[in-house]
Design a protein around this nucleic acid. Sequence first.
DNA 1: CAGGCGTGGCT
DNA 2: TAGCCAAGCCT
Length: 350
Amino acid sequence: MSPSDQRLAAAIEQWFPLNARDLPWRNPRTPWRALVSELMLQQTQVSRVLERFEPFMDRFATPCSLASADEQDVLAMWQGLGYYRRARSLHRAAREIVDRFDGEVPIDAVSLCSLPGVGRYTAGSIASIVGGAREAIVDGNVMRLLARVHCDGASPTDRVFIKRVWSWAQNLVDICEQPPLLNEGMMELGATVCTPTLPSCDKCPLAALCQSRLQGRVSEIPPPKRSAARQELHHYAVVIKRRGKVLLEQRAATGLWAGMWQAPAIESQTILSESEVIKRLPFPLQSLRIQKVMQRTLTHRNVTLHIYSGSLKRGARVPATMGVKWVPVGGLADVPISNAGHAVLAADNS
DNA sequence: CAGGCGTGGCT
DNA sequence: TAGCCAAGCCT
């Protein structure tokens, strides 16, 4: 612990109460609201979560309420937020909270970390901010903030660097006055002042202590992560409507858009001919008309959506398997469908 | 353990 | 515009 750690912690703890945004999960702050908001916020902008948090809490007010819900209803409440495994993890976490913790969200880091979807950051965040424990937290904000304060230009993916940041964060929370103020203050500073581009150093309470500022290197730290190359994915979807209903299939339980529903589709890394698409579809189709082609960029995939409208051959029956169903066009909001899936359904004019 | 996992905003 | 980024976790 360096002497400046004391001053760093004090500066953050003084700054935060005067500059905290009025975010819904801070008032009232309960372990359950903290857990739900933390899951929603993983790799997701605050502005996206703002619109979705209270409706989710209204629907699932307690762990018991979520635990007794159907997973499909949970996914439907999550649709459009992305990273859908989080919704399934939260659902399973609620069931474990009922089974193992008598329906009360634990606030110790070890118990929290044992829940699905809860890792070191999320557990530390709830344990420290809700429970007041001296647990460190390191998210993207804290990593950037501390890298700049210490003028450490290592790659953010470097594991040794990441361990170093956790060590800095633990030192700070060990010596601070109030862990909730320190930890939430660090995140808030990173989110609103020590931003990735154009940080507001003139408003930063750490400016006098910030080594990268003193050395004029703020803009170089942290260095950009090089993004992974995106693979091409061709998604051939057929929108089949009949008597005000549309035919949907459920995606596989793992992988992209796991468990979500969509217009029946064939996926391939390469371009397919129309006849190949027809051949691979599990339904006998009478006609197939191209409606639209759209691009979607995902984290690691470049998806081309080839959207067709189609009709089944006369008398054709859709196999009555689980994972295929007719859904009224007006009831699509109740079925978990990704934004790409909604775009496909909306592009069809038939 | 490096890569998979969504979406939209920003530059 | 093409790429980077966001309150990470899981396998």
